[in-house]
């Protein structure tokens, strides 16, 4: 109940930034349309029915869904923690009777809920009106939603672990950037990871990153083994959950010893 009210209050604060709120969505839609045009050309000139099992229609929805999931998972806890530590009032957060990691999570969740209802769902509906229904079944759609929720938890944990770096380095900007860039090469935003050479692909399968956006998208499109994907996600969550708590406690010890 308390968590719900906190989320509600934080969600209100999100809506104060209207331009920022819709700005990156427009960019994202343009990006989807650009990729659609490029792939249209590829299919037109190669005369292929499908590439690695993806028809043109599949690819359109691949890009739509993966972009929308990426938006949904755009966790920026690390950025906010860094801002709090550098300019704001991180210390006063430590003096509130709420755990800082939990507050970060609720804060981010509030943003994601606002995003889903005001950005992601409406955009998805508009795309369906333009391009028709996605190649999903009801089951794949439901499993897709579960897999996105798991992906979100995984992303929160990864981002939170990154954010603890700020307590050990003076500035963690560079590390965030390297991480973001690296992530975009292997999260399937540019093209389905299946298009990678087989050896690379088989290595990626054992990393947590494809389970953030790529596999949830495939689950939606009914192109992956649901239980396999969910299983890997759960394993990574179970691994990262204690690790992120351990890192947070390490950071706390450091803060208490040397200040922020």
């Amino acid at each position: 109940m308390v968590a719900f009210r906190i989320i509600k209050n934080l969600a209100k604060s999100r809506l104060a930034y209207k331009f920022e709120f819709f700005g990156n969505l427009i960019f994202s839609i343009l990006w989807i349309l650009l990729l659609v045009v490029i792939w249209q050309a590829v299919f037109l000139f190669s005369n292929l029915e499908s590439i690695e099992g993806f028809t043109f229609h599949d690819l359109i929805f691949y890009y739509i869904i993966i972009q929308l999931i990426r938006h949904g998972l755009d966790v920026d806890i690390s950025y906010r923690v860094e801002q709090l530590v550098r300019y704001g009032n991180f210390v006063s957060f430590l003096l509130k009777p709420i755990s800082f990691p939990i507050f970060c999570f609720l804060d981010d969740l509030s943003e994601k809920l606002v995003n889903i209802f005001l950005k992601i769902l409406p955009t998805f509906l508009v795309f369906v009106l333009i391009f028709g229904l996605p190649p999903s079944t009801l089951t794949s759609f439901l499993f897709g939603i579960i897999s996105v929720i798991f992906a979100y938890l995984l992303m929160v944990l990864i981002d939170f672990m990154l954010s603890t770096l700020i307590f050990f380095t003076k500035s963690s900007h560079g590390i965030f950037d390297v991480f973001q860039t690296g992530l975009h090469l292997i999260d399937g935003i540019l093209f389905p990871l299946i298009f990678f050479p087989e050896k690379v692909y088989s290595i990626l399968l054992y990393l947590p990153f494809p389970y953030l956006t790529f596999f949830p998208t495939l689950v939606f499109l009914n192109k992956a083994d649901f239980l396999n994907v969910l299983g890997f996600q759960v394993v990574w969550i179970l691994l990262f959950f204690p690790l992120s708590f351990f890192l947070w406690h390490l950071s706390l010890k450091r803060i208490e010893g040397a200040g922020v």
Binding site: V2, R5, I6, N9, L10, K12, S13, A16, Y17, G88, N89, V91, S92, L95, K96, P97, I98, F103
Partner: peptide, 29 residues
């Protein structure tokens, strides 16, 4: 305990203070 750092703020910068108060009400129960 309450705390104020005169050079830093614990309020949402872009919202009326009353919104921050509401959040504090929940955090402190």
């Amino acid at each position: 305990v309450g705390i104020i750092f005169g050079q830093k703020s614990q309020l949402f910068w872009d919202l009326p203070a009353i919104d921050s108060f509401e959040l504090l009400k929940d955090i402190y129960g």
